[in-house]
Design a protein around this nucleic acid. Sequence first.
DNA 1: TAATACAGGAGCAAG
DNA 2: CTTGCTCCTGTATTA
Length: 320
Amino acid sequence: MNLVWHSINLPPNEIYLDKLLRCGQAFRWVKNNNIWSSTLNNRVVFLRQTEDQLEYASLTSSQKNSSNIKKLQPKLEEDTQDDVLGLISNYLNLQISIVQLYKDWASKDAHFAKVSAAFAGIRMLQQDPWETLISFICSSNNNVKRISKMCHALCLEYGDFIVEYAGTKYYSFPTPVQLASRASEASLRELGFGYRARYVYETAQMLADDKALFMQLHSMRSSSFTDEQVHEFLLQFKGVGPKVADCVALMSLNRHSLVPIDTHVLQFARRDYSYKFRGRSNATLSSAMYVDMKRFFVDKWGSYAGWAHSVLFTRDLKLE
DNA sequence: TAATACAGGAGCAAG
DNA sequence: CTTGCTCCTGTATTA
């Protein structure tokens, strides 16, 4: 069983998978034999790259709703190549060139100019809002490694089996209805979610019980809402504070200018942009300072500040 | 080897 | 508006 690969002309300075798929935006990409894979929209997507090409392949289950795992055979997706290309283009935000953006940020920010060359190809993904919401609820007081473990556990325990390939079984990310009906706070605790179990479960319940609310979450991508409206909307979910709201808004709802201030951003703001952030109370980040720091970076980098932040964030993460 | 410190956000209560 | 504590787990450091 071989994958059928397709190519997109795209150099590594527009996308660099090895860093991008590990840098704390998405948590379910896995690299095997130099191929990255994850599930998107009930299909498995494979990605790899060469000097100047991004290559992709895809598999989906031959049956729509799969309960009898053993019968399922992998099915090649030659006929729906255009759909997969569209899916991948949207997910990777390929309509936006980051080479231009890097130049723009470098011209406005000497520090960015100095350090960004070693971190080329870090773009912003456009992920599913629901999955992003749950993933970042899990991210509180947490690190990339454990968040990944938790997200994979959600799929394995509560998602649907899609297909097996090269010894790996792939599962979809559970929908709100699946999570609310198949999981419980207790079962999530057993999986190691800790105090986040309640937040994840309650958020799933809210969205499972109220279809309009679920539709509204997705509709927040629309430019008819302001960044502030999106931020406020997201705060209604349990386990979502200012930082998580900004992550979800930036990474799944097109709010390109939002800069989520977490401990890493706080550190590099003080270390590299310092002057006005060092003097203040050292330990914790007050909400006033949170807002202040966000504004500082938008003023510096402009309307794609959130994307620029991801480059420096990746630099600060010590990727294993 | 076992206890301890620390890292990482949200939410709540009190100052 | 700010401060301080709790929630839970994994890793690093210390006795």
